[in-house]
Write a protein that binds this DNA or RNA. Structure first.
Lengths: 128, 128
DNA sequence: TCTCGATATGTTTTACGGTACATATTTAGA
DNA sequence: TCTAAATATGTACCGTAAAACATATCGAGA
């Protein structure tokens, strides 16, 4: 990456990263969750992608994948028109995102103490 | 891969996958945990690697990385001799592995219900 | 009817992770 | 002193995921 914005993720912020495997090859992790979040926040796949330093192509591909996972699509998109097109979460999309965030929070909570113990074993230089 | 044994992992078994980021670029996930587990079970890096369909080189590299993370190494290895060499977990190694497994279990528990809800949204064909 | 910003895809190129392969080293015991 | 199996590394190669690049399409409103 050019700047220090986006990175492979998964190794940035301290904490627990959760990946939910619903079925073989059907999984949701931080990446897909963030895309959904970005679409909810910005109202567009492109903006969501930009926000997380990801090409539109890739963002769109993730959305495509997500939409294929469930019975109903998670993201609804439109082209042209007044708003020049855009995308938003469907009720199912909202549900899935909220559910993931909830699991994330629960996990974070249940893991915090144990993590602190492990952090104690790190070299002093990297301690905090 | 040639056969269907080892794969990228992370998308196989249904459930929650946990990655613990202790510091930027210092993280433990299913892969490193499994290596530690394998060494504990088999007494050798090579055997551990074989068991999970991973090249010795890669397995060794992971161990190298893990040993560099903490104040004390997690894996202690020896070469030659009666046993023809081998490797085993240090007390710290045992600690870290146990801790990770504990967090995994806790996470699995706290996430189960929400996961079931999400699974309900999958297409019938992929339902169960 | 022209515009503009976003969606929707296809194609090419590049970067990187990982495997494959090769070799050196270690050391108790036969 | 030769062996055997595992550790310890280096290097070359390759397949794939992601980026880069290129278009095409859409459609309300100016």
């Amino acid at each position: 990456m050019a700047d220090g914005t986006a990175m492979k993720a998964g190794n940035k912020t301290i904490g627990a990263r959760l990946r939910i495997v619903l079925k073989p090859d059907i999984a949701i992790g931080p990446g897909k969750a963030d895309i959904l979040q970005g679409i909810r926040d910005t109202g567009s796949i492109a903006a969501a992608g930009r926000r997380m330093g990801m090409s539109y192509k890739r963002a769109w591909l993730l959305v495509e994948t997500l939409n294929g996972y469930f019975q109903a699509p998670l993201v609804e998109s439109s082209r042209g028109g007044r708003s020049r097109g855009g995308a938003k979460l469907t009720p199912t999309g909202d549900l899935v995102l909220d559910s993931y965030r909830r699991m994330e929070a629960l996990t974070e909570g249940v893991v915090a103490e144990e993590m602190e113990t492990l952090r104690q074993l790190l070299p002093d230089t990297a301690q905090k």
